[in-house]
Design a protein around this nucleic acid. Structure first.
Lengths: 344, 344
DNA sequence: CTGAAAGCGCTAACAT
DNA sequence: ATGTTAGCGCTTTCAG
């Protein structure tokens, strides 16, 4: 016998059959199902009746082929470490992107790109015209995927930048500004020895937050000491370790700015373990990467990222690029907000 | 000017151009890019050279239309509460499904279906032939989506059942058997008064686990008491409350079987708060729904669900149905495993 | 306002 | 082994 491959199974009615039943031409049916103007109301109605009677559903492959859009966009997560997938940061972005698309006819497709094979497959998929645009989350600095997509003319929007001169359209939080406001707040409240736990410094986001920290110190005329800087990797554990390290080599510190809330949580642990009272002896502020994380200290003062806005903005930019091929790229930086909760 | 909609942008080379450059017919190019047999090695090579030179990428819409498969499957999450998205249960399923598909040319598309509008849109998308099959997670009992898809002949696989006579193909864990083995273990270790915290009893999975509990009691000749049964909603908090309730109305209990690990964690809290020692005074076993949850007590004895297998099996069934339209549906129940960790 | 006709780019069946 | 041909189902001019 052999492998019989019936995809769109036989019975599926076509536009032509609808036209026949309604006694009109195919063009008219097409206009009706696409809500195009210029169809007599009575005709429209009879076509709609035929559509309902036959249970007609347009074949999307044919529609795409005939030159229209795919009516779908991809939100891709390029993260070899699948555990990140569960992080509140990502589920929040996914939710807000979904919300921004909920009242459109654009289908959101989440995809995971972990290996090189998956990367190739996705590029084929996207270049093959099955999506109108691509949003990328958690892109690593060396990742060429965004360029591959953008170069072939596919609307592409990044969440965050890979470097200071990012070429592809992106939406990012004001990381430097956020860090600056956090550190300025610490200095304004009388703290003089403000240390920082940075993120991994090969990531641009971590560099920005460190720069903001330095700028705030400089503006306040406080001398920048290397003993006040310790590098973490955004994990809670690294925050604990880095803070302990700071405490050991710079016992004078009376405030800590951590480049993520999870590291700040770890920092709190380390400070308390060392007998420091928070915020009396040491004030702490974290940059809010995982705003809903259960494990974050609820009293922690943080710099809040507007995740909802980020998702919405990514969608807006993407749809705009989809409809206006003139724009090469755009860069959007969104404001952050300091949320005081008692640890600083 | 107006809205210029250039999807697959002008320059994109077609199969025909490749054929021309390679000096062969279109059919031959098609065979080469599809790795079909029966092409002279030298011809194949020259075609491949032309493909590379032009940067040719097949138009997937055209390919789908021409009668082949879409080479994509959807994994849909029908969950109005987007927070579930971050649960380890789901990220684990997503990961294992992704793994099972990683070496195929089938693109995995994750989609969220929360509102009715999104449901309609997805049905259009799937019926429109843009996926070869659909896997559904977290389907609620009243959800008609699986039927809508299966009825139009789209291969459909459910994770879990909606009821005892589920019609659509599904993969489920042996919930009754798992509960039975947990309770039997408690009874075997000498406990006589085994209570249970159930899940919401309008969910089939919760009914199955309760049934397993009852069967184990009956087989051991232990009388089934209604005061030993309290209903929760799978959340940690509900587990705490339900356990406190059990303690109040049946102080004699010396073991608790909770229908989820999170509820078991809540139960442990309640037991300890009431001064009961675990496992000396009371033994506890939970059904392992969120196997990686940080908040679950690491010492908790659980009934483990083979999540990895579940994902792999869903993919296998789906691909088989894709290739063999003869099968109407299949039901697969996977074994669970009791993992002793000290609380029972 | 509506019908007819020309593809969109590809696969598969049929020739050769 | 390879070229040729006939669609897949739809959108979109172009005539009426």
């Amino acid at each position: 016998m052999g492998v019989v491959m019936v995809r769109q199974r036989p019975g599926t009615p076509t536009l032509e059959e609808v036209a026949a039943l309604a006694g009109v031409g195919r063009g008219t049916v097409s206009r009706v199902i696409n809500n195009a103007a210029g169809v007599k109301e009575s005709t429209r109605r009879s076509v709609q009746r035929a559509v309902a009677e036959l249970g007609y559903v347009p074949n999307l492959a044919a529609r795409s082929l005939a030159g229209r859009r795919a009516d779908a966009v991809a939100l891709v997560m390029t993260e070899p470490d699948w555990r990140m997938f569960g992080e509140p940061f990502f589920s929040e972005i996914v939710r807000s992107v979904g919300d921004a698309l909920t009242d459109t006819k654009v289908q959101l497709l989440l995809t995971l790109v972990r290996t090189d094979a998956e990367r190739r497959r996705f590029v084929e998929y996207a270049r093959g015209g099955r999506v109108d645009g691509v949003m990328l989350m958690s892109v690593h600095a060396e990742d060429a995927l965004p360029d591959m997509l953008a170069e072939v003319g596919l609307p592409t929007v990044l969440l965050g930048r890979r470097s200071g001169d990012e070429g592809v359209t992106y939406v990012d939080a004001d990381n430097a500004g956020g860090a600056r406001s956090a550190v300025t707040h610490l200095l304004d409240s009388g703290r003089r020895s403000v240390a920082t736990v940075t993120g991994p410094l090969d990531m641009y986001v971590a560099q920005c937050r460190l720069r903001g920290y330095r700028e705030a110190l400089r503006r306040a005329g406080v001398e920048d000491r290397s003993s006040w800087i310790a590098e973490g990797d955004f994990s809670e554990d690294s925050g604990r370790r880095a803070t302990a390290e700071l405490l050991a080599r710079a016992p004078e510190i009376d405030a800590v700015f951590a480049a993520s809330d999870t590291m700040a949580a770890g920092g709190l642990t380390a400070l308390r373990a060392a007998g420091r009272r928070v915020p009396e002896d040491v004030a702490v502020i974290g940059f809010d990467d995982f705003p809903l994380a259960q494990h974050t200290d609820p009293k922690l003062t943080t710099v809040r990222q507007p995740l909802e806005d980020i998702g919405r903005t990514m969608v807006r930019l993407l749809l705009e690029e989809t409809e206006d091929s003139a724009v090469a790229w755009r860069h959007v930086i969104l404001r952050t907000e300091l949320v005081l909760r008692g640890s600083a």
